[in-house]
């Protein structure tokens, strides 16, 4: 089994606060890997460490058998694309401008795109269904459209790994599924590795090959969704009552957090 990404014993602290402690994980090429955990568990920090945006104080990150510290930023960006949680829309770039920016790590010193780059950008926009928005400005887009534009930009980078930081948080259920199905389809067609941070335990259950549960900077458990999305583990990590049962879809776990007013049904 080849590991495209290998993290061993990562620790990260900011001032005196421990953010990640002894985190280890391996991700295989082509895997859909989901990182879950409560707010402040260190999910986004972990994503930053494994993308090289944040240097860990201890431990190593290895990407394609090479230490991340030995990569130039440009080469790293040819392998890995990031879909961030917050997207800057203040400057009036159009959708086309934005998507083709994904070609940056592949361009020469003057940064001029060629025909091939425009072709790749067009394909990316077609794939995420934003071709009709080409000349719109980013701030004119809805949340779902914006997210698909940013994913098109990531695809345009032609990466082997795509990192997504809570890509569905602000979206309605239909748009959530659209984004997730896009990522799943892209992975199937290109063998791209996908690593996603998410708050949505049911999406993690339905789409993840493996799930990592993080709490207070430590790995609680890594494994297939059914083994990690376990009532005791989740209740202990999130600190609320949670019901886990078999989804009517069959074969996957369904997670239901329980509000106070329904608690009497379960005690």
């Amino acid at each position: 089994m080849s590991h495209i990404l290998d993290i061993s014993n990562i620790s990260l602290s900011f001032r005196d606060k421990l953010i990640l402690s002894n985190v280890s994980l391996e991700v295989s090429a082509g895997e859909f890997f989901v990182i879950i955990g409560p707010n402040g568990a260190g999910k986004t920090s972990l994503l930053k460490v494994l993308s090289g945006l944040q240097k860990a104080q201890k431990g190593t990150v290895t990407i394609k058998d090479k230490n991340i510290l030995n990569y130039r930023r440009r080469n790293l960006s040819q392998i890995m694309a990031i879909v961030p949680q917050h997207i800057e829309v203040g400057f009036p770039f159009t959708v086309a401008d934005t998507v083709i920016m994904g070609r940056s790590p592949h361009l020469g010193i003057l940064g001029m795109e060629g025909e091939n780059d425009f072709h790749i950008a067009e394909e990316a926009m077609k794939f995420t269904d934003v071709s009709h928005l080409t000349d719109r400005k980013l701030f004119q887009l809805s949340g779902g459209e914006l997210q698909r534009v940013i994913i098109a930009r990531a695809i345009c980078q032609q990466p082997e790994i795509i990192l997504l930081d809570e890509p569905t948080t602000a979206l309605d259920p239909a748009h959530q599924l659209k984004i997730m199905d896009l990522m799943e389809k892209f992975r199937r067609e290109h063998g791209t590795t996908i690593i996603m941070v998410s708050h949505d335990l049911n999406l993690a259950s339905m789409y993840g090959d493996r799930v990592l549960l993080l709490k207070s900077g430590r790995v609680v458990k890594t494994g297939d969704p059914k083994s990690v999305l376990n009532k005791e583990l989740l209740e202990d990590s999130y600190g609320c009552r949670i019901q886990v049962d078999e989804s009517p879809l069959g074969g996957v776990a369904r997670v239901t957090p329980i509000p106070d007013k329904y608690l009497h049904n379960y005690d």
Binding site: L53, R73, R74, S77, P84, S104, L110
Partner: peptide
Amino acid sequence: ILARPMNLLLLGRETAAAMGIN
């Protein structure tokens, strides 16, 4: 020569870094 990196810097420093800018 640095005009294109400046475009990316407008999107925020982390996004610029993620797209290969030192």
